[in-house]
Computed example of a mutant assay.
Amino acid sequence: MTTTAVPSAATPAAATKLPSAWSLGRHRASIEIKQFFRLREQVVFTFSFPIVFLFLFASIFRDDMANTGATASQYYVASMIASGIMATSFQSLGVSIAIERDEKVLRRLRGTPMPPVAYFLGKMWLVLVTGTMETALLLLFGTTVFDVDLPSDAMGWLTFGWIFLLGLTGCGLLGIAISSLPKSGRAATSVVVLPYLVLQFISGVYILIDTVPGWMLNIGALFPLKWMCQGLRGVFLPDSAAALEQAGSWEFGRIALVLSAWCIGGLVLCLLTFRWKSARDG
């Protein structure tokens, strides 16, 4: 007579395998995306703001740019895409995470078995989705309303792709880092929006790059927005327009180095500064 061993719940074979941080990050991303789209006012403002500014600037400044063959609409499509990338990453994360910390959402999440990296993966997935949607809307609006020409070759789209991804990642990490600066969720908007607004003026978003004082451009060059604007101008504007740049060229190699450095530097800043609790919680 033979007996059959019954597996015990305590045996390793029957043990439940915990999901990976990557899997939990994707699950967290679905929650973040659903929460974002449930706030209709936030959705409308996020996606309409750069389109409204593109319409205003491209309509007001309709002349060709200094005999370079470039139009104002081409210039401002590039500028508003760069600005939109920073808005959906740096500004969005800087404000929302500060509010979540103030409302003790982060503290509760930290007390769950979810690994911390899953939370940040969820935020970066949210940034990727919203940044992609906003960029697509700007491209659609620019091509249909102002007849902006899109890149005609694979190299142009490849350049567009790595600028988008590096810029989004660097600005997203910088937004996570700056979220620890406001002392309360109520103060987050003022603390985060002010530097973002200033950078738009000194990085060639609202003002044509050849009219911005050199010392302002030098300050703007310390941050990723100026380099995203310059790289995207290189994608959408003709090569002759590079003469308007501070260096007289698009400097794609330097753009890649600076944006990559911001990805690394932003990660270091996150590790050094991020807090799960507000200062008054100890």
Rank of each mutant, 00 (worst) to 15 (best):
A5Q: 12
V6C: 11
S8N: 12
S8P: 06
S8I: 05
A10K: 10
A13N: 10
A14N: 15
A14V: 15
A15T: 11
A15H: 12
T16E: 13
T16F: 14
K17Q: 14
S23R: 13
L24D: 02
R26P: 00
I31Y: 11
I31P: 06
E32P: 03
F37Y: 13
R38H: 11
R38L: 10
L39H: 14
R40A: 09
F47S: 00
S48F: 06
F53Q: 03
I60P: 06
I60R: 07
F61E: 07
T71Q: 08
S73T: 01
Q74T: 06
A78V: 05
M80S: 03
I81N: 01
G84I: 02
G84F: 02
G84M: 00
M86K: 14
S89F: 12
Q91V: 10
G94F: 06
R101K: 14
R101A: 07
R101V: 08
R101M: 07
R101H: 01
R107H: 13
L109M: 15
P113A: 04
P115F: 02
P116V: 12
P116W: 09
V117E: 09
A118E: 05
Y119F: 14
L121E: 04
G122N: 08
G122C: 07
M124S: 02
V127N: 09
L128H: 02
T130H: 03
T130N: 09
G131K: 04
T132W: 05
M133G: 14
E134A: 11
L137T: 00
L150W: 15
P151G: 01
A154Y: 05
G156C: 02
T159S: 09
T159F: 00
G161V: 06
G161Q: 00
G167L: 05
G167K: 03
T169Q: 07
G170R: 04
G170W: 02
G170A: 09
C171P: 07
L173F: 15
G175Q: 12
I178G: 09
S180N: 12
K183G: 14
K183Y: 11
G185N: 01
T189I: 09
T189D: 11
S190Y: 08
V191P: 04
V192L: 04
L194E: 08
L194M: 12
L197G: 02
Q200K: 10
Q200E: 08
F201Y: 11
F201M: 06
I202Y: 01
G204W: 03
L208N: 10
I209H: 10
I209K: 11
G214P: 04
W215T: 10
W215G: 03
I219F: 14
F223R: 07
L225P: 00
L225M: 08
A242L: 02
A243L: 08
L244H: 04
Q246T: 13
Q246P: 01
G248T: 01
G248V: 01
S249G: 12
E251K: 02
F252T: 00
F252A: 01
A256W: 04
V258N: 03
V258M: 02
V258P: 03
L259Q: 04
S260L: 09
W262Y: 05
I264D: 06
G266K: 01
G266F: 03
L269E: 06
L271W: 09
S278Y: 08
A279P: 06
R280G: 12
G282L: 11
